[in-house]
Design a binder for these strands. Sequence first.
DNA 1: TTCGATGTTTGGTATGACCATAATTGTTAG
DNA 2: CTAACAATTATGGTCATACCAAACATCGAA
Lengths: 233, 233
Amino acid sequence: MDTRTAEHICDDIEIRIVNGDLVEGKPLPAERSLMEAYGASRTVIREVITALTAKGFLRSRPRFRPIVCRPDASTAMHAAGGVIKHLLASSQNVHDLYQVRVLCERMLVRDAAVGAKREDIQRLRQALDDNEQAIDDSAQFYATDVAFHRQLYVISGNSAFPAIHQAFVEWLAPQWSQMPRSPERNRTNFLAHQAIFEAILSRDPDLAEKALISHLDSSWQFVSSTFFAEETP
Amino acid sequence: MDTRTAEHICDDIEIRIVNGDLVEGKPLPAERSLMEAYGASRTVIREVITALTAKGFLRSRPRFRPIVCRPDASTAMHAAGGVIKHLLASSQNVHDLYQVRVLCERMLVRDAAVGAKREDIQRLRQALDDNEQAIDDSAQFYATDVAFHRQLYVISGNSAFPAIHQAFVEWLAPQWSQMPRSPERNRTNFLAHQAIFEAILSRDPDLAEKALISHLDSSWQFVSSTFFAEETP
DNA sequence: TTCGATGTTTGGTATGACCATAATTGTTAG
DNA sequence: CTAACAATTATGGTCATACCAAACATCGAA
């Protein structure tokens, strides 16, 4: 009765996705099946599909059946990303976002210094070693760099943090990809990672935080020097 | 050429929104105008509109022209919220999200203790006073409670944090609204706020963090006691 | 001037059709 | 019998048209 059948169907399918009725990874029923099932026209079914796709509950390639995505923290971040990427046209917003990341990681390293388990330390050491091995391969170094920081998020034991880390990486990637790289710079970053690791190992939160701030501030200097074009009227 | 004219139009309108060509708060041109402007059928235009709506670039009521929304950090959070609300059906995820909030605020109060300006302190004191005045009015107390915490985010000087705070409040509201309230409980919370304020005032980050953790952990105990139904097969 | 009846605009929905490509089936050659 | 190929079907992308009801604009009557 309420003049929007599309929303009802949209909500229903949303529910059927989260409760597992529609299985993740499997394709959605054909549009023509759905219109029969819901007694609606194809117009409204297609509207539902586009809405769910934009919301992140479906992933649809041009000529294929939409694939069901049970939403997790990662897809939530991805949904926000559609807007975020526009915000990051302003370097001020890039800086703000980066500072959010810095704040998170500061607390994470403090907590790691206080409460990291043996296995956590072990994995972090492994990530550090991988990072060192990649000093001469900038592409590989970037990957291991990300992995090292990611480990800080994993240690928290909170499943939301790895997703948050992933979001930071994706959103800030455009800026970082422009960053000049070199084995010397890589070595500097590796040493910074090592300092963070050592501080965690010695169970010194203040030192760990200080090392992390130093590292990330230095990175920011490097990155921010690559964009000087800004025009906010 | 590429079998998806909708995406092109979608991207174009997105750009026209962010660069101000389409003014925020004003209604989008009529569907029939857009189909003429883009030389596309109404089907495509409507698909574009629903997609942009789900993305947060438009806000559309049933029988009204869609309103243009220049996306900011707040709408980004709102876009993610569509997914988040489903995740929070699991109390584990609620806990994880809450812990993310706790981590943020721990760092924020530490920073406030170290670097809060006089005006920051003044506004925080005002928020604390408002909170105290509202002890006997649970609805008003909730509002001032939120406002007090929000001030911690504002002090950071980072425009992203107030939006993040807003997101925490919205996402966790369903749980919080079920929380039993009383003047006694309000007073307890006020005293916790006061302790945090005092710690910031005395420039003691460790004490401030400790006071905040105590406060938020206590709140969690209270809230979590209100949901004991969970079934994750 | 104000208020209300009336006609126009516009969004919501439904049909039906056509095209291009993916998926399926059937056929044939090796 | 199998594998490569051709024909058929299923399905998503787009279009044109039509109708309804609610919002909007217009204008005339009180």
